[in-house]
């Protein structure tokens, strides 16, 4: 069980120098059910990354609580950051291997590299890669640990359309093979509808939830662009608030 209960009363960045104190999140309450695929949608700078960092326990300086899974077991969290954050002085292969524990199976790296068609780049240093490639490596890194919770911060942004489609497909396959909870930040409503069980719309700061909407489209119908587009149109007419957030 890896339900995530997020209950942030307050997250404030204190005033620093001439910058005023900034209230990033206020009264945000969200329950992510185990094995659910949730997309967060909101304007840029609204605090989505702050929220992911809080869940990943990188930022514990907020008022409220986040319960991930059962309290006494800390879940494995895979985090695909907005920047790839690869270690430039380690090869692609080493970068991925480093996140595994000693007795984890290395076979998964082979499989993932192969599926992403990046196997020939194993021994290359990240500085020689394009941003899109680095991004895919950082996605592989997050997949490789078999996470209980996968946090993805606009992971497909600088990928060309075919790679994005390919990675999206891989993400769904892996998620279906080995269900885990996914929290996926995006600006792209179509992408969100294609992927998510649930869409969560967030307001500009102080961030709170505008609406939570379940996506009722069956998984095998998600390839159909017209169904996605129809749902999108309907969303925008049903919830006029959403339009301002996109």
């Amino acid at each position: 069980m890896t339900d995530i209960l997020i209950d942030i009363k307050h997250k404030t960045y204190p005033a620093k120098g001439s910058a005023q104190a900034h209230i990033a999140i206020k009264e945000l309450k969200l329950l992510l059910k185990s094995h659910e695929f949730v997309c967060l949608i909101g304007p840029s700078g609204c605090g989505k990354t702050t929220l992911l960092n809080s869940i990943a326990a990188l930022d514990n300086d907020f008022d409220g609580e986040i319960l991930v899974g059962q309290q006494h077991v800390s879940p494995k969290i895979g985090y695909v950051f907005q920047n790839p954050r690869l270690l430039p002085w380690r090869t692609v292969r080493e970068n991925i291997e480093l996140v595994l524990n000693k007795n984890d199976d290395r076979q998964i790296i082979e499989t993932l590299l192969e599926t992403m068609q990046l196997k020939h780049l194993q021994q290359v240093y990240p500085e020689h890669l394009s941003l899109g490639m680095s991004r895919r490596i950082s996605i592989i890194r997050a997949f490789a640990i078999n996470p209980d919770v996968l946090l993805m911060d606009e992971p497909f942004v600088s990928l060309d359309a075919p790679s994005a489609r390919q990675v999206r497909q891989l993400l769904l396959t892996l998620w279906q093979q080995r269900p885990h909870t996914i929290l996926f930040v995006t600006h792209d409503l179509r992408e969100a509808i294609t992927l998510a069980d649930k869409l969560v719309f967030l307001s500009s700061p102080p961030m709170k939830i505008v609406s939570e909407i379940n996506v009722p489209i069956a998984r095998d119908k998600r390839d159909d662009e017209s169904i996605i587009e129809a749902f999108r149109q309907q969303l925008i007419t049903d919830y006029p608030d959403i339009k301002t957030l996109l």
């Binding site: 990943a56 990188l58 985090y79 950051f81 954050r85 270690l87 480093l98 996140v99």
Partner: peptide, 11 residues
């Protein structure tokens, strides 16, 4: 950023 990455992946 890299330190955060290391922390997140339980280095």
């Amino acid at each position: 950023e890299l330190l955060e990455m290391a922390h997140c992946y339980n280095f």
